[in-house]
Simulated assay, not measured.
Amino acid sequence: MSAPLSTTRAIGLVAGREFQTQVQKKSFLISNAIILVAIVAGIVAMSVFGGGDEERPTVGIVGTSSLSTTLGALGDATGSPLEISELPDADAGRTEIAAGELEVALIPGDDGSVVALTESDIDSTLKTLIDAAVAQEAQSAALTGQGVDPAEIAAAAAQATVTVEAIDPPDPEQGERMILAIVAVILLYMQILMFGMYVAMGVVEEKSSRVVELLLSTLRPLQLLWGKILGIGAVGLLQLAAYGVVGVGAALATDTLTITGTAISVFAGTLGWFVLGFAFFAVLYAAAGSMVSRQEDVNSTSGPLMFIILAMFFAAFSSIDDPEATWSTVLSWIPPFSAILMPLRIAAGVASPFQIVGTIVLMVAVTALLGLVAAKIYQRSILRIGRTVTWKEALGR
């Protein structure tokens, strides 16, 4: 008679079996290949169609007036660069405006006045720049007429600068941080919900086919429970890691994403919080699955878990605009909300090291306690074929 398997080896064998069963499914391989291709294609499309330079307003100036230099300098200084070209005469300006090649054609007069030709109307920003350039040209001409060098006036004015010192300067990476936070929230929601249901469905499948009776002839119930959770969890972690590596790699390669350190830390944090969030719900989904004998009855026992996951998702999305809100900060300390709110806060750069460590400890502690309760339910329910086991029966002494 062979010696009984050690707990570690038994759990490892069950986990390996679950892992191989999941990753060898054609549906799993094909669906993930399609998703990975879609991720790369979407990021490439964003870089091609969304990353182009903003089109500059086109202005033509008749002759070789210094107005061209003044207008170009003002546009650059105000963050509204212009595309300026030289025109031989006013008729050429009218022709290019009619053809849509110019927005405005400027015709300087001998008395300092300027005529601005346009098809219908001039953009208000462009009109302001033109007015300022014409006024500056007139001022320079007047100073020159009085024997004053305009260059000396400009040099003196340039020294009178204003230096801004912000008490709370804006984060230049805030936009990309928010994008990373949104992606992390969506991925965590989908992965925790999907792989939690995989655990429940797997438990029910073994129970309804009576395979569990054969397995329990050589394994203890807790060995089977934890082996299934670890095996399916490893598949979810592998899938999430593949999405992250391909997505972050493609975004960095196409310059869609530039904050390399933050992107990698958010990626690593998302993987870690998936492990914690999945473990929290997997033990509960396994217990819920053990209470029924048909897959169509799973929702009757696992429904409350789905509502909790949905509540986590909506809470996270509601706090994206203000991750430092009091309610969001308080809720992020409460398991299982920590699993989806903390990656968001880490991505937004508002989570302190104390909060990160503290929420991890709380999440692990609560998961361990729930694991004990779920294991008791699993042991009492897994061999009871037929009607659905009530919560009172499952938790009874």
Rank of each mutant, 00 (worst) to 15 (best):
R177E: 10
K392V: 14
V14Y: 08
G227D: 10
A375F: 11
L341I: 06
V40M: 05
W391Q: 11
V298G: 05
G272M: 01
A200R: 00
V246H: 08
A251C: 01
A160F: 13
P343Y: 07
L214V: 15
R56M: 15
A339D: 04
V185K: 05
I35L: 15
A311L: 13
T329H: 05
L383A: 12
D149K: 09
T367Q: 02
Q191R: 00
S381H: 09
G358I: 04
Q136M: 13
V248T: 03
P108W: 03
T270A: 14
I340E: 02
V14G: 13
D89K: 10
D89L: 13
T69A: 15
D255N: 14
A135K: 10
M342N: 10
T258Q: 10
L117H: 12
G396Y: 05
W226G: 09
I130L: 08
T326W: 12
Q20V: 15
R17G: 15
I264T: 05
S209P: 04
A38W: 07
A351E: 06
T95E: 14
E103A: 15
D89Q: 11
I34T: 07
D255S: 14
I35C: 12
S319P: 01
M194F: 03
L276F: 09
K376Q: 11
I309D: 04
F195H: 07
V361Y: 07
M363Q: 15
I186Q: 02
Q239G: 07
R345I: 08
F307D: 06
S265Q: 07
F307S: 14
V235G: 04
E176L: 03
I382M: 07
A142C: 03
I346M: 10
F337K: 03
R294C: 12
K392N: 14
L193V: 08
L225S: 08
Y189L: 04
W333H: 12
L257S: 01
V164F: 09
G42D: 10
P353T: 01
A181F: 09
A154G: 12
A98Y: 08
L257E: 06
S332W: 02
F28H: 08
S80I: 00
V203G: 03
G145R: 14
P169V: 00
R384S: 14
A394F: 05
Q355K: 04
A141H: 07
L383G: 11
T58A: 15
W273Q: 05
A156Y: 00
F354M: 13
S290P: 09
L240S: 09
S27I: 08
I346Y: 04
L370T: 11
G60P: 00
D131P: 03
L82T: 03
W327T: 09
L372D: 01
F281I: 09
A250N: 07
L87Y: 01
S302Y: 10
P353S: 08
S302D: 09
G236S: 08
A250F: 12
L187C: 15
L214F: 13
T7Q: 11
Y285L: 06
F280D: 11
Q379Y: 02
A394H: 05
P88A: 12
I34R: 00
S120H: 10
S209L: 05
L369Q: 02
M194K: 02
G236P: 05
